[in-house]
Design a protein around this nucleic acid. Structure first.
Lengths: 147, 147
DNA sequence: TGACAATAGTCGTCTAAACGAATATTGTAG
DNA sequence: CTACAATATTCGTTTAGACGACTATTGTCA
C-alpha cells in the first residue's frame, strides 16, 4: 500500500489558502488595471506617489510597496517613458532622485479609484464589514510574527 | 487645505492586507526554496505531481496550480532539463502529454517537506490552531464569492 | 466519410523580474 | 583633508512571465 498522503499542518493550510485567495483576488483587479495597461506594481507606485506630492526617493518608494520589487529604477523608467511620473535629482543630497506624479499620472490614478473600489466591493462585499475586519485583524496577527 | 485622504473601504483594506501578508510569507518560503534553486511555481508543480504518480496532462497541472501560470510548457521544459520530471506522449489520446516525477524529483520534493514545514511553523506558529482555522475559514469565505 | 469545431500543447516575441556588479555622492575617522 | 565605509541609484545579463499565433489530434454531425 502506498504511504498515505501526509496531513498538512494548519500553518501550511493557512499559507496555501492565503496564496490562493490573493491570486484569485488579484486576477479581478488585474482585469481592471489591464484596461489602462497597468500592472499591480505600477498602480501601487501611482498610489504611493499620490500620497506624497513633495516627491519620494527610490528607497522610500521601495519601502512602501506592497510587494517588493528589487528593481525600482526600471519600473520607474517605464512609467517615466509613458509620462506618468517625473524624476529630478535632488540638489541637497545629490544621491537622491525624487519622483513625482505628472498631471497625467495623477489623473490616471484618480480615474481608477472608482472602478477599483467597485471590483473590491463585488469580490468581497458579500462578507460584510465585521468579517472583513476580523480577517484584517487575523492577517495583521499573521504578519506580526515575521522578522 | 489639501483634500483629506479618502478613507479606504473595508474591502480594499482587507485586499491590501492580504497581498502584504502573502508577500511577506512568500519571502520566507522562497528563502528555503532558493537553496535548491526552485521557484514557488516549480515547487508547486513538484508537489502536484507527487500526488499523481500516474502522471498528469499540462491542463490538469495548470488547473491545480495555486497561482496561475499561462505557460506550463516552458515551465516543464526547464524542470525536465534539470531532470526533475519526465514527459511522455499518451498513446490513447495523442494530444495529451503526461508528466511524472523522476526519482530525483521525488527525492527533492520529499527533502523539502521538513524545512518547509519548519518555516511555516516559525512564521505562523504563534497564532495557534484556533486562529489559523478561523483565518482559513474567512479566506474560504472570501473566495466563495468569486466567479 | 469529410468538413469543421474543440481540445491539447508548443513556439515566437516582447516585456518584466531577479541577481549582482558598478557608479556616484555623502558622512566619518584619523 | 584623505581614505574609507555607507547610502542611493543605475546598469548588464540571465531567466521567467504574458500574449497570441500555430500545429496536431480527436470528437461530432451532416
Amino acid at each position: 500500500m502506498v504511504k498515505a498522503r501526509q496531513e498538512k499542518s494548519p500553518e501550511e493550510e493557512a499559507f496555501l489558502d492565503l496564496l490562493r485567495t490573493a491570486d484569485a483576488l488579484t486576477r479581478g483587479a488585474d482585469w481592471v488595471l489591464k484596461a489602462e495597461d497597468l500592472s499591480q506594481t505600477q498602480y501601487n507606485v501611482l498610489r504611493i506617489l499620490r500620497g506624497a506630492p513633495e516627491g519620494l526617493s527610490c528607497g522610500e518608494i521601495a519601502s512602501r510597496m506592497i510587494t517588493r520589487d528589487p528593481d525600482i529604477t526600471r519600473l520607474l523608467d517605464r512609467m517615466e517613458k509613458r509620462g506618468l511620473i517625473s524624476r529630478a535629482r535632488e540638489s541637497k543630497d545629490r544621491r537622491l532622485v525624487l519622483t513625482r506624479l505628472t498631471p497625467e499620472g495623477l489623473k490616471l490614478v484618480n480615474c481608477l479609484d472608482e472602478p477599483v473600489l467597485q471590483i473590491h466591493r463585488k469580490q468581497l462585499g458579500h462578507m460584510g464589514k465585521d468579517r472583513l475586519q476580523a480577517l484584517a485583524k487575523l492577517l495583521a496577527a499573521a504578519r506580526s510574527g515575521l522578522s
